[in-house]
Design a protein around this nucleic acid. Structure first.
Lengths: 231, 231
DNA sequence: GACAATCGGTAACATATGTTACAGGGAGAG
DNA sequence: CTCTCCCTGTAACATATGTTACCGATTGTC
């Protein structure tokens, strides 16, 4: 039943570090459900009962959420091997927080949270690995959200730019480096309009803080640049 | 050794659902370290080696973080019973992401992450509960961050207010309800200055969207209010 | 009741930011 | 080369928001 999907599952971070044999034993132990969906079918419906952490085995699905205004907003796209529902699984809420819709025919495997934490009778030690992986996935998600928050909670544009450049500087270790995002992408990431980004960067150049041409950047006045970040 | 702290630990969400006896067995099993600190001592230093999830047993501590500019920013205050380091414990990073400083003499217990996931020999079933609790804590943290992000990524003040009111409305089910935050707190939560909040709320009242007096609110024009949220 | 402390509303002003439209310059295609 | 297209920078303008300061209302305390 699970055989044909083993390779895809092994690529999921949930089963990271396992080999085929271990995964097989594991699956025998927790007996997850595999369900097929047609295009445009609901894989999960926001507000309805949560049935387990999902992994897309084949096909592609879209995660959408209704905001307070009732508009559907696309949260992300899920491809084969990707995970959903991991945040809500252990939160104590029993409902899906968002809707997942099949973009094409999909196969999805659902793993019930209780199966993950309960001692399996055979005491497979992959079980322990599974829990470790899950903890790691959740931790990293939280840390990632934390980093995004840092940018969003800086109120002024100059602060955001400075924060970003300093982070890149730390990462590269040199005063001169190349941005991996173009202006459009950077503006999106910082959640500001592109012309505002350009304008502010030029002002910063005029003031001697930085120098740039296209995507190559040099930090001229490190100390002053740091002073621009002020939450 | 742990006896005098049992009551405080039982209040921690990490040990939620356990009784004194269970906790005791648990502690014998994972043997956490208890360390005392003087006022102003570092309990954890950002960048240094992570030693375990911490619980404040007595005293009060401050979590601070250096932002890109090198300024120290207060993240939160920790009181007795509260937890820190739970996000980084299983993330794969081995370093503290922030600094924790004792504000007064403190006692802290550190629980090593490996002790949590490893099968204890005595197979205590509180162990399973501990893991469940940890998963719950991390999930809720991620969901909370997610919710905050929703607010922060709305660009205009009116959108933030509308989003918040609609969320409260959903929660209460009635068009008229009471806010649990005062203006100052609400402004902080939405990351805007208080006078700007007041001003915008009054404009919304003038336009007939809402009515309010102090902390009691009535939604007059639900449809229009929804139209105000636009990400 | 008198007082202080806190909270919320208001106004006036400065300024940062959003918006729109356009122009120059590099890069790739033919 | 020459012609596009796309990425940037630039400008002008409207407007949302930040800032500061003050005032009245409410609440709690003595």
């Amino acid at each position: 039943m699970y055989k044909q999907w083993l390779n895809i599952m092994l690529k999921s971070p949930l089963f990271y570090g396992m080999d085929e044999r271990q995964l097989n034993i594991m699956l025998e132990c927790i007996k997850p459900r595999v369900i097929k969906y047609n295009k445009d079918e609901f894989i999960a419906l926001a507000g309805s009962n949560f049935i387990g952490i999902g992994i897309i085995l084949s096909g592609e699905a879209m995660v959408v959420k209704e905001n307070a205004a009732g508009n559907r907003v696309i949260i992300s796209l899920l491809k084969a091997g990707e995970l959903f529902g991991e945040m809500v699984a252990f939160s104590g809420k029993g409902k899906w927080p968002a809707t997942v819709i099949a973009q094409e025919p999909c196969t999805v495997i659902f793993i019930s949270p209780t199966a993950i934490v309960s001692q399996c009778e055979k005491l497979c030690n992959s079980h322990q690995l599974l829990i470790m992986n899950l903890l790691k996935i959740l931790s990293q998600k939280a840390l990632m959200l934390n980093r995004k928050m840092e940018y969003l909670s800086i109120r002024n544009i100059r602060g955001k730019i400075s924060h970003y450049l300093l982070e890149q500087y730390k990462h590269n270790g040199k005063a001169m480096f190349t941005l991996s995002l173009n202006r459009n992408e950077l503006a999106d990431f910082l959640n500001i309009p592109r012309p505002s980004l350009s304008r502010e960067m030029c002002r910063m150049r005029d003031e001697g803080l930085i120098d740039f041409h296209r995507s190559s950047i040099r930090i001229n006045d490190l100390e002053n640049l740091k002073a621009q970040v002020d939450l």
